[in-house]
Design a protein around this nucleic acid. Sequence first.
DNA 1: CTCTAGATAAACT
DNA 2: GTTTATCTAGAGT
Length: 179
Amino acid sequence: MPIRFDQDILDLARSLPGARLLVRGVGGTVIETEAYGRDDPASHSYRGLTARNAAMFGPPGTVYVYLSYGCHLCLNVVGQAGEAVLIRALLPEVGVEEMIRRRGVARDIASGPGRLGQALGLSLGDSGKRFDGGEFLLQPATTAGRLLVGPRIGITKAADRPWRFGLAGVPGLSRPFPR
DNA sequence: CTCTAGATAAACT
DNA sequence: GTTTATCTAGAGT
């Protein structure tokens, strides 16, 4: 049963923690995500199609990569048009040496969207590709862990929406969840 | 633990 | 032309 990229964006964001993500053969288990909706002031798609967010309006399962704060590449999974899930953290499992080499340090390898982007060796040119099992592979979670829920991080608009999801009991979350 | 500098594309006035 | 942004590393308290 493959992942349904066209389902409701909150359902998609909830289904990804526990899934396996590989980028060009390197990656691990997703442990933290955030949802960005169509009618969401915090979403890049809020003000319609632009050159930067074009990939967010691609078909479900599109890869959306953008540059944040001038120095960090962040990875998103596009759902329905204008909606996406930000991958905030993962557990390094495959190609750990490769990720450490790219990051330069052996700790906090992919705990945070910018670190994850660096560990996976992303580039802006990856935006618009697909999670089709080629360069980008996303396999559904096999076991359902307990899900943590909290407000999204680092945004100034609609900061109160509890659209951040994480896996309970794992190390490596970018930030702790409220009780 | 808190604070700050850094880095750049794109939206905004 | 100015401001902001889905952030991180490193220094300071």
